[in-house]
Amino acid sequence: MSSSTDSPTLTTETTQLSPQPDTETAQPTKKITLKSSDNQIFEVEEAVAMEFATVKSFFEDSPSSTDTVPLPNVTAKPLSQVIEFCKEQIKFKANPDEAQKKKYHSEDLLDVLNQAVADRIENKSVEYVRGFFGIDNDFTAEEEAALRQEHAWAYEGVDED
């Protein structure tokens, strides 16, 4: 997982954020760089990045790594939405009253994730989708062949697995 990348690594950067009026201490924030499967770079605060299990385990494996964390399972669009969600999550954890008011956010996130999954399987073969969801094929060979024959056009132009 930890391969060198062509993008600059910024994990140890200690740029101070502009002081917030109602936060008691403005800590220097560690930043982590994430890379989506379509090679978009996202620079996020450590606390936000640690909301991602993949990122967390990456740093548990190599705590002092300064590499960009590759996220080969997600494209830029859903990733940016998930990052926004994690930022909100952290704010809400710090201020639960506000969190109560905005509980609906988690439903938005589910929409984003479900759509991202749909985008991923949209052009995939039946075999790929079975593997993706861990579903066993319960059709007999004859039943499956008949179904495929009935709507042969729907099996055209499918991505290679």
Binding site: D119, I121, V126, D138, L147, R148, H151, A154, Y155
Partner: peptide, 26 residues
Amino acid sequence: DIIVDILTYLPVKSLVRLRCVCKPWQ
């Protein structure tokens, strides 16, 4: 319910194809 929700985002052609995944999906 998550599976159902994911499938509502798919275009018709994908859904016609994915009827073949298993009997419950059909």
